[in-house]
Every structure is written in C-alpha cells, then in structure tokens.
Design a protein around this nucleic acid. Structure first.
Lengths: 131, 131
DNA sequence: GTCCCTGCAAATCCTTTGCACTCCT
DNA sequence: AGGAGTGCAAAGGATTTGCAGGGAC
C-alpha cells in the first residue's frame, strides 16, 4: 500500500469535478484547472483522475462515443447518451438500489457498483432531424 | 440512405460474433477471421463492426478498461467487469425489461436501449489476492 | 533526506481514414 | 459500368509513461 502525499493539483482536480456537473472529459478538466495552475500538464490530470477513480472518489464513464468522462457524483444515478451528438446527461429516474445486491447473489466474484447507460437521440438532435 | 452491398468479410465477421460468446475485441475478431480470410485487414474489421453496430445487429461494449468489445447477443442482459483483470462476463441476472419505458417517461429525447455494467473483482482475481 | 508528485515530451494503444484497386449488382 | 467494399499504410485521438527536477513530510 503506497502512501499518498498531498498535492495542490489533485485537490484542485477533485474540487473542479465536484463543482461542475457536466461530466467533463480529462481535457475539459485540464482546461479548467489551467486557469488556476497555468503550468499543470495533461499527464498530471490523467494521473490524478485515475488515482481518484482507484480511490473510489470519482467515477469514470465510458460509453462508446468519444473520450471517457468523469463524475464526482457518487450517488446512484443513470445516464443518457445521445447516439448522434454524443452528449451525456443525468436521467431523473429513480434508480434500482437493490440491483447490486441481486447481482451479487448470482455473481461468483465481488460487485461494488454498477453503471447504466441509456442510448438514444437527445431532444436537440430530434429537432435538428425534423428540419 | 446508402445501399448496402454484400461482402464475404462482413458476413464472416457477423458469423464470428454470433458464434463466440466471449465479448471479443476488434482485434480478437480480426485474428479469428484471418483463419478463413488471411488477407483481411484490421481496418475492414473496424469498418464492418461499426456498420453492424449502426445497423443494430451488434452491440459495442465500453466500460473503461482496455479496448471496446462487441456482442451479437441483442437480448437484454447485464455484464460484469473485473476492475483488476478487465475480464467481462454475462450476469445470469433477470434484467429489468421495463427500465427503458420508465426512462423514456423522464427523458426529453428518445431512448432505444440501455446497457448496464457491474464492476468489481472476479472470482479468479479474488483467489489470487488471497495468496 | 526520502520518496511521491510534477511538467514535459515521447511513446503507446486503439481506431479511423485516404487511396488505388477489387468485387457486387 | 457504377459505386460500395477492401487491403494497406499512414494519420489521428486519447491515454500512458520515462525521466529529471520540485515539493511534502
């Protein structure tokens, strides 16, 4: 087990993720942080994001369109992904909290969380298509 | 709407995906197909996999560990992803068929399907860790 | 002082793409 | 014949990594 040392950069990255709720990519985070720490590098952002994911303080979202995104909202919630523009948004849908337990019963390994992605076409793209 | 022409390669890729149930990566598929068509290129495999995904005949799985995987099993089912070794397997869990409808009610756009990933540590990695 | 963390740049991995040629229809 | 599909190789995008210097403890 490796000891963790404080770093302003990591602190700032975590704060950034907790403040914005738009599921930013690593690059989005990088650009935000640069306003406060102009010398930060993209590599550092990636290293810290991965570290935060390992620590369970942040979640990585992968859904098959474009780069991964990061979310500091650890509450159980679902995401909607637009197949056309790739936008991603939270769904105000009551999530099934017992799902992990149920899954645990039928799984040989150990489950600690789950992520659900709904795919479709967002409102904006539907409008564009109808023109 | 573009007309689709028959291609032996695409046929073979689809057959391959329907026969194997191990969620292969594009490269895995490429290596399989090469046994029958030694000249096929990885680019062709990617092009056809993407085409099949667009046609809705195949699903792409992205879950944050390593390359994307492909699945010709269109039935509603859930996946388990091992955080340590990256392996992925089907979960024999009764899936919630009404979830799409519920999500549709609270979504401004149009939803056509959803994918759920459970994350944890697989049986094999649990064993290794205990040594 | 030690060891983790950083910035930088190069490297790596995965995927897409341009082009000349081939195969379906 | 026409145009979609292919193989090849190069390009592209996202992410990781090696290294020398800087900062936390």
């Amino acid at each position: 087990m490796k000891t963790l040392k404080y770093s302003r950069q990591r602190e700032s990255i975590k704060t950034c993720l907790m403040e914005r709720h738009d599921h930013p990519t690593a690059d989005n985070v990088y650009l935000s942080i640069r306003e406060e720490y102009p010398n930060i590098s993209l590599g550092t952002v990636y290293r810290n994001l991965n570290l935060l994911v390992e620590l369970g303080e942040v979640r990585k979202l992968s859904f098959g369109y474009g780069p991964d995104r990061f979310d500091a909202d650890l509450s159980l919630h679902y995401h909607f992904v637009c197949r056309e523009c790739g936008c991603i948004s939270d769904l105000p849908l009551e999530p099934s909290a017992q799902l992990n337990e149920k899954a645990q019963c039928c799984c040989q390994g150990h489950i600690d969380n789950h992520l659900t992605y709904f795919y479709g076409v967002c409102q904006d793209c539907l409008k564009k298509n109808s023109h």
